[in-house]
Amino acid sequence: MIMLRIDIEKQLGGFALRAAFESDARVIGLFGPSGSGKTTLINMIAGLLNPDRGVIAIDDDRLDDTEAGICVPTYLRRIGYVFQDARLFPHLSVMQNLDYGRRMNRLARDAAEETRIVNLLDIGHLLARRTGKLSGGERQRIALGRALLSRPRLLLLDEPLGALDEARKAEILPYLVRLRDEAEVPMVYVSHDDEEMRQVATDVALFARGRIAAFGDASILSQAGARQG
Protein backbone atom coordinates (compact mmCIF):
# COMPACT_ATOMS: atom_id res chain seq x y z
CA MET A 1 0.00 0.00 0.00
CA ILE A 2 1.02 3.58 -0.47
CA MET A 3 1.48 6.19 2.22
CA LEU A 4 -0.60 9.32 1.71
CA ARG A 5 0.72 12.32 3.60
CA ILE A 6 -1.25 15.54 3.87
CA ASP A 7 -0.51 18.73 5.74
CA ILE A 8 -2.18 21.73 4.14
CA GLU A 9 -3.91 25.03 4.69
CA LYS A 10 -6.35 26.72 2.36
CA GLN A 11 -8.40 29.87 2.64
CA LEU A 12 -11.52 30.09 0.46
CA GLY A 13 -13.40 33.31 1.10
CA GLY A 14 -14.48 33.14 4.72
CA PHE A 15 -13.79 29.42 4.96
CA ALA A 16 -10.46 28.15 6.29
CA LEU A 17 -9.39 24.55 5.83
CA ARG A 18 -6.55 23.02 7.75
CA ALA A 19 -5.87 19.31 7.53
CA ALA A 20 -2.97 17.06 8.46
CA PHE A 21 -2.80 13.28 8.53
CA GLU A 22 -0.82 10.32 7.29
CA SER A 23 -2.33 7.01 6.32
CA ASP A 24 -1.55 3.83 4.46
CA ALA A 25 -5.10 2.50 4.75
CA ARG A 26 -6.80 0.78 1.83
CA VAL A 27 -9.69 3.19 2.07
CA ILE A 28 -9.36 6.49 3.87
CA GLY A 29 -12.81 7.87 4.63
CA LEU A 30 -13.36 11.60 4.89
CA PHE A 31 -16.50 11.98 6.95
CA GLY A 32 -18.40 15.08 8.00
CA PRO A 33 -21.35 17.36 7.21
CA SER A 34 -21.46 19.19 3.89
CA GLY A 35 -19.39 22.36 3.88
CA SER A 36 -16.83 20.91 6.29
CA GLY A 37 -14.04 20.87 3.69
CA LYS A 38 -13.97 17.24 2.49
CA THR A 39 -14.45 17.98 -1.19
CA THR A 40 -12.04 20.92 -1.03
CA LEU A 41 -9.42 18.56 0.33
CA ILE A 42 -9.78 15.91 -2.36
CA ASN A 43 -9.87 18.58 -5.06
CA MET A 44 -6.46 19.58 -3.73
CA ILE A 45 -5.22 16.01 -3.77
CA ALA A 46 -6.33 15.83 -7.42
CA GLY A 47 -4.62 19.13 -8.19
CA LEU A 48 -7.84 20.89 -9.22
CA LEU A 49 -7.20 23.33 -6.36
CA ASN A 50 -3.87 24.38 -4.93
CA PRO A 51 -3.14 24.68 -1.21
CA ASP A 52 -2.05 28.06 0.16
CA ARG A 53 0.56 26.35 2.25
CA GLY A 54 1.68 22.81 2.89
CA VAL A 55 2.53 19.41 1.48
CA ILE A 56 0.61 16.65 -0.29
CA ALA A 57 2.70 13.55 -0.96
CA ILE A 58 2.28 9.94 -2.01
CA ASP A 59 5.14 7.95 -0.52
CA ASP A 60 8.19 10.10 -1.28
CA ASP A 61 6.64 11.76 -4.31
CA ARG A 62 5.58 15.30 -3.41
CA LEU A 63 2.59 16.46 -5.49
CA ASP A 64 2.39 19.80 -3.72
CA ASP A 65 5.02 21.43 -1.61
CA THR A 66 4.53 25.16 -1.38
CA GLU A 67 7.91 25.76 0.28
CA ALA A 68 9.80 23.91 -2.45
CA GLY A 69 7.60 25.46 -5.14
CA ILE A 70 6.31 22.07 -6.28
CA CYS A 71 2.87 21.81 -7.80
CA VAL A 72 2.35 18.87 -10.15
CA PRO A 73 -0.45 19.56 -12.68
CA THR A 74 -3.54 17.38 -12.45
CA TYR A 75 -2.91 15.37 -15.60
CA LEU A 76 0.52 14.20 -14.42
CA ARG A 77 -0.59 13.09 -10.95
CA ARG A 78 -2.04 9.72 -11.91
CA ILE A 79 -4.81 10.13 -9.39
CA GLY A 80 -8.25 8.93 -10.49
CA TYR A 81 -11.35 10.85 -9.50
CA VAL A 82 -14.95 9.66 -9.39
CA PHE A 83 -17.17 12.72 -9.12
CA GLN A 84 -20.57 12.83 -7.51
CA ASP A 85 -22.11 13.66 -10.87
CA ALA A 86 -20.23 10.98 -12.90
CA ARG A 87 -19.15 13.47 -15.61
CA LEU A 88 -19.19 10.98 -18.47
CA PHE A 89 -18.22 12.49 -21.82
CA PRO A 90 -21.51 12.86 -23.71
CA HIS A 91 -19.98 12.77 -27.20
CA LEU A 92 -18.32 9.39 -26.60
CA SER A 93 -19.80 5.91 -26.24
CA VAL A 94 -19.49 3.99 -22.98
CA MET A 95 -16.57 2.00 -24.40
CA GLN A 96 -14.80 5.18 -25.54
CA ASN A 97 -15.36 6.70 -22.10
CA LEU A 98 -13.76 3.67 -20.47
CA ASP A 99 -10.87 3.78 -22.90
CA TYR A 100 -10.23 7.53 -22.54
CA GLY A 101 -7.67 7.36 -19.72
CA ARG A 102 -5.67 4.65 -21.45
CA ARG A 103 -5.52 6.72 -24.66
CA MET A 104 -4.52 9.92 -22.88
CA ASN A 105 -1.77 8.19 -20.91
CA ARG A 106 -0.60 6.32 -24.00
CA LEU A 107 -0.82 3.00 -22.19
CA ALA A 108 -0.77 -0.30 -24.03
CA ARG A 109 -4.11 -2.04 -24.33
CA ASP A 110 -4.61 -4.62 -21.60
CA ALA A 111 -7.58 -6.77 -22.54
CA ALA A 112 -7.39 -8.88 -19.38
CA GLU A 113 -7.53 -5.84 -17.12
CA GLU A 114 -10.39 -4.37 -19.17
CA THR A 115 -12.38 -7.57 -18.85
CA ARG A 116 -11.65 -7.79 -15.14
CA ILE A 117 -12.91 -4.26 -14.44
CA VAL A 118 -15.91 -4.61 -16.75
CA ASN A 119 -16.90 -7.83 -14.96
CA LEU A 120 -16.20 -6.40 -11.52
CA LEU A 121 -18.65 -3.57 -12.25
CA ASP A 122 -21.10 -5.58 -14.40
CA ILE A 123 -21.09 -3.10 -17.26
CA GLY A 124 -20.41 -5.49 -20.14
CA HIS A 125 -23.91 -5.08 -21.57
CA LEU A 126 -23.54 -1.28 -21.71
CA LEU A 127 -20.31 -0.94 -23.70
CA ALA A 128 -21.86 -0.14 -27.09
CA ARG A 129 -24.39 2.32 -25.64
CA ARG A 130 -24.19 6.08 -25.63
CA THR A 131 -24.25 7.83 -22.28
CA GLY A 132 -27.49 9.82 -22.64
CA LYS A 133 -29.99 7.19 -21.54
CA LEU A 134 -28.12 5.43 -18.77
CA SER A 135 -29.50 5.30 -15.22
CA GLY A 136 -27.70 7.10 -12.40
CA GLY A 137 -26.30 3.85 -11.02
CA GLU A 138 -25.03 2.76 -14.43
CA ARG A 139 -23.38 6.13 -14.99
CA GLN A 140 -21.60 5.96 -11.67
CA ARG A 141 -20.33 2.43 -12.34
CA ILE A 142 -18.97 3.54 -15.70
CA ALA A 143 -17.30 6.57 -14.13
CA LEU A 144 -15.70 4.18 -11.64
CA GLY A 145 -14.50 1.89 -14.41
CA ARG A 146 -13.20 4.82 -16.44
CA ALA A 147 -11.13 6.05 -13.49
CA LEU A 148 -9.79 2.57 -12.71
CA LEU A 149 -8.76 1.89 -16.31
CA SER A 150 -6.53 4.97 -16.36
CA ARG A 151 -4.41 2.95 -13.83
CA PRO A 152 -4.31 5.52 -11.05
CA ARG A 153 -2.11 5.01 -8.02
CA LEU A 154 -4.84 6.50 -5.85
CA LEU A 155 -8.57 6.78 -6.44
CA LEU A 156 -10.62 9.67 -5.09
CA LEU A 157 -14.37 9.20 -4.66
CA ASP A 158 -16.46 12.27 -3.89
CA GLU A 159 -19.81 11.09 -2.53
CA PRO A 160 -20.15 8.65 -5.43
CA LEU A 161 -23.54 7.57 -4.06
CA GLY A 162 -24.72 11.07 -3.12
CA ALA A 163 -26.90 11.63 -6.17
CA LEU A 164 -28.56 8.20 -5.99
CA ASP A 165 -31.70 7.02 -4.18
CA GLU A 166 -31.58 4.29 -1.51
CA ALA A 167 -32.21 1.44 -3.93
CA ARG A 168 -29.42 2.58 -6.25
CA LYS A 169 -27.06 3.08 -3.32
CA ALA A 170 -27.66 -0.50 -2.28
CA GLU A 171 -26.93 -1.46 -5.89
CA ILE A 172 -23.51 0.26 -5.98
CA LEU A 173 -22.22 -0.28 -2.45
CA PRO A 174 -21.30 -3.95 -2.95
CA TYR A 175 -19.19 -2.94 -5.98
CA LEU A 176 -17.24 -0.49 -3.85
CA VAL A 177 -16.60 -3.12 -1.19
CA ARG A 178 -15.52 -5.55 -3.91
CA LEU A 179 -13.27 -2.90 -5.32
CA ARG A 180 -11.62 -2.39 -1.94
CA ASP A 181 -11.06 -6.11 -1.50
CA GLU A 182 -9.99 -7.00 -5.05
CA ALA A 183 -8.36 -4.04 -6.69
CA GLU A 184 -4.93 -2.95 -5.63
CA VAL A 185 -5.67 0.74 -5.83
CA PRO A 186 -6.09 2.60 -2.52
CA MET A 187 -8.99 5.03 -2.20
CA VAL A 188 -9.96 8.25 -0.49
CA TYR A 189 -13.69 8.10 0.07
CA VAL A 190 -15.76 11.20 0.85
CA SER A 191 -19.22 10.83 2.37
CA HIS A 192 -21.58 12.22 4.98
CA ASP A 193 -23.37 8.90 5.41
CA ASP A 194 -21.95 6.98 8.39
CA GLU A 195 -23.46 3.66 7.30
CA GLU A 196 -21.64 3.91 3.96
CA MET A 197 -18.43 4.83 5.78
CA ARG A 198 -18.64 1.83 8.10
CA GLN A 199 -18.99 -0.51 5.15
CA VAL A 200 -16.23 0.92 3.01
CA ALA A 201 -13.59 2.83 4.97
CA THR A 202 -10.73 1.36 6.99
CA ASP A 203 -9.36 4.67 8.31
CA VAL A 204 -11.64 7.63 8.94
CA ALA A 205 -10.97 11.35 9.27
CA LEU A 206 -13.82 13.24 10.92
CA PHE A 207 -14.25 16.72 9.48
CA ALA A 208 -15.90 19.62 11.25
CA ARG A 209 -15.82 23.22 10.03
CA GLY A 210 -12.58 22.92 8.09
CA ARG A 211 -10.71 20.96 10.77
CA ILE A 212 -10.07 17.28 11.33
CA ALA A 213 -11.76 16.60 14.66
CA ALA A 214 -10.64 12.99 14.93
CA PHE A 215 -8.67 10.41 12.97
CA GLY A 216 -8.64 6.67 13.47
CA ASP A 217 -10.27 3.41 12.44
CA ALA A 218 -13.98 3.10 11.70
CA SER A 219 -14.87 2.81 15.39
CA ILE A 220 -14.51 6.58 15.80
CA LEU A 221 -17.71 6.92 13.77
CA SER A 222 -19.77 5.64 16.69
CA GLN A 223 -18.09 8.12 19.02
CA ALA A 224 -19.02 10.85 16.57
CA GLY A 225 -22.55 9.50 16.40
CA ALA A 226 -22.77 9.45 20.19
CA ARG A 227 -21.46 12.99 20.36
CA GLN A 228 -23.94 14.22 17.76
CA GLY A 229 -26.84 12.16 19.22
Binding site: A46, G47, L48, P73, T74, Y75, L76, R77, R78, I79, G80, Y81, F83, D85, R87, F89, Y100, G101, M104, N105, R146, A147, S150
Partner: peptide, 17 residues
Protein backbone atom coordinates in the same frame (compact mmCIF):
# COMPACT_ATOMS: atom_id res chain seq x y z
CA UNK B 1 -15.59 22.88 -17.49
CA UNK B 2 -16.30 20.03 -15.10
CA UNK B 3 -15.87 17.68 -18.04
CA UNK B 4 -12.51 19.24 -18.79
CA UNK B 5 -11.49 18.68 -15.17
CA UNK B 6 -12.57 15.06 -15.41
CA UNK B 7 -10.42 14.66 -18.52
CA UNK B 8 -7.42 16.11 -16.69
CA UNK B 9 -7.81 13.64 -13.81
CA UNK B 10 -7.74 10.88 -16.44
CA UNK B 11 -4.32 12.06 -17.58
CA UNK B 12 -5.15 14.35 -20.51
CA UNK B 13 -2.73 17.24 -21.04
CA UNK B 14 -4.38 20.64 -21.68
CA UNK B 15 -4.01 20.54 -25.48
CA UNK B 16 -5.39 16.99 -25.58
CA UNK B 17 -8.34 18.09 -23.44
Amino acid sequence: QRLEQAAATLGAAPWRV
